[in-house]
Design a protein around this nucleic acid. Structure first.
Lengths: 343, 343
DNA sequence: CGGATTTACTAAAGCGATCTAGTAGAACGT
DNA sequence: ACGTTCTACTAGATCGCTTTAGTAAATCCG
């Protein structure tokens, strides 16, 4: 077990009494070596813990065994959302099964994101790219096409033909499920404390609520910046109104917890006086008192699915069709109940 | 602007009318080219958006401009802790200033983690490595030394001479602060619901509590697997005992929330009948009702500091001394109060 | 049985940088 | 004027792997 120099394919070749080329054939399952020789080579490789140099592989244009994810979000804000950790954990867990690494990069904006993509591709650093936060007229899709890179978009609808394939979650169905549940409980005045208006899912969810006017549900949508402070303020004013809502739905769990507290401080019992629900679940949503009804989406699995699709595309060398991600389900908990008769 | 082939250092050389070697000298600020030529080359590089191939660089043993972080934690559990997202965001935000990427890998255990380290180093994929979750007799430190890799350990004390330098948070001081605060409120029976026994900080914190026996505080330490279910069970049994604690401290916010709920279900008012505190803060800890007293640490900055130290070491080519990370501070909230006289 | 094909290899040319050794030509010193 | 030292380069080896072209031996076929 001599230490020192790293063992290269040439060393293996020498030990097996063949040429480096033969070893390469054997390793990559290419014809040109007899089964017997292949076995012998593989055994020697095993024995000497040989690992291909990814740098050398990348240089000759082979697989880099790395996938890139450039994230254009303010760094400080990432932590409050379990979403990203879960997503990344899901992606990684799938990737590491295939011994593929994740290259993570935080960037300031979409322009820098695309620049990073270019660099990655031009030096063959990554085999595929993950995109998130789709926008209208997203310039990234075209860019990816010119780079001839495999990619997946994590979004809320299937991608059009020719664009970057997506793994998507049907946000309108999610909204349908939650709002209908509340309507079925008997709620007719529902408030929706949403995120920023420019996000696709905010619009989709609000539209669903609007449509429920047909069923006698009067909805009210208030957009926020996702901050708990805004959520508290909004809740306070909602519950102070003459005709106050009997149910409030928040875009995420942090806002829901903030709203819950305000309700309690104002002497409104939850769920007796007002029902509360969230579009995003978390461990804490189930532990708090009262526990909060939420749409549970399996973000981890979403990550896994995105990674799976990307890996398949990399192997196939072509784009594959978009795939629907895990469907969020309703987790009914203590914070929702039928409204009390007397308003 | 002809597309197609990627522009290499040879193309630049041709355009500048010099040899590839000269271009390399110019790019890396090495002597051997006149200032005039250097400017000309740099201009051409700029103009043609040339980027060095990281693969080629890695192959000749130059900087890879990548830092590796292999995480040996169950993937599914990562999301519940904001800690990792914050930490990674902090690390990344510092790295990306220097155009360095983060290579993230989830591994099953320490053995696989070390294996990944070996691969990374042997193929020159990363310039430095980040370690976390130090344990007693950590085998990783020696391994890193034999790999001759730069690394930082995110830990709870300065590393001994020769070991991997750490960015550390004085966990004993943290524990001292929180336990003393409770003692000062008048608590004499304090329970500490900790994480796994093999983690360094668990031991450090427990030791602090033990030492307080001198001041008339009787402490009890219960180790857990960090799961809310265990935290609930432990809390239930603590509060059912004849001589129950007047204050319970949890290792993280999720467990604290779980414990809080159990206390309320058992009819113990918080903080009147029992005080609750956490060693880990989060947005929700401050929003919940009652809000939870916690030690607030700036995880983002911890990540930044770790990245900074690592980058400095990479540039210097040697190990640098350990550095103390941001000091956590006590955030007193509603969940703690003096114990009521009658037990 | 002899030419064509197949099999199992080897030799060597890249991939795109870095880096060492070598070489003109200019400047310098005496 | 001639050797020495700089300066500003160039040529070419090198990193570890893949891959193409080439070759000897084995196999096939009529």
């Amino acid at each position: 077990m001599t230490s020192g120099k790293r063992v290269t394919i040439a060393d293996i070749a020498r030990m097996a009494g063949v040429s480096p080329g033969a070893v390469s054939f054997a390793l990559n399952g290419r014809p040109g070596v007899s089964d017997e020789t292949r076995q012998r080579i593989l055994a020697i490789v095993e024995e000497n813990h040989w690992q291909p140099s990814s740098a050398a592989r990348a240089l000759v244009g082979a697989r880099a065994n790395t996938v890139g994810f450039a994230l254009a979000r303010p760094a400080r804000s990432l932590g409050s959302e379990a979403f990203f950790t879960d997503l990344i954990a899901g992606i990684e867990s799938r990737l590491s099964e295939s011994k593929v690494s994740l290259q993570l990069r935080l960037v300031a904006d979409i322009a820098e994101e695309m620049e990073v993509h270019r660099q990655w591709r031009s030096s063959n650093q990554v085999d595929g790219i993950i995109l998130i936060d789709p926008r209208d007229d997203d310039p990234r899709s075209d860019r990816i096409a010119t780079l001839d890179a495999r990619a997946v978009l994590i979004g809320s609808k299937p991608s059009p033909e020719g664009a970057v394939p997506s793994v998507w979650i049907a946000d309108d169905e999610v909204a349908e499920t939650l709002f209908s549940y509340l309507a079925a409980l008997g709620h007719t005045r529902i408030a929706y404390v949403a995120g920023p208006a420019e996000l696709e899912h905010t619009r989709l969810r609000a539209e669903v609520l609007d449509r429920m006017a047909a069923d006698g549900v009067s909805g009210e949508v208030i957009t926020t910046d996702f901050s708990p402070a805004r959520a508290s303020a909004v809740t306070r004013s909602l519950l102070s109104a003459r005709l106050r809502p009997t149910a409030i739905v928040y875009d995420n769990d942090v806002m829901a917890v903030a709203g819950l507290r305000v309700a309690q401080e104002m002497g409104r019992a939850v769920p007796r006086d007002v029902s509360i629900a969230s579009f995003d679940d978390s461990v804490i949503a189930g532990l708090i008192n009262p526990s909060i009804t939420a749409m549970t989406r399996d973000t981890f699995e979403l990550g896994e699915q995105a990674a799976t699709l990307l890996l398949q595309q990399i192997v196939a060398g072509i784009n594959l069709p978009s795939a629907q991600g895990p469907t969020p389900t309703l987790t009914a908990r203590e914070s929702t109940a039928p409204p009390t008769a007397a308003p």
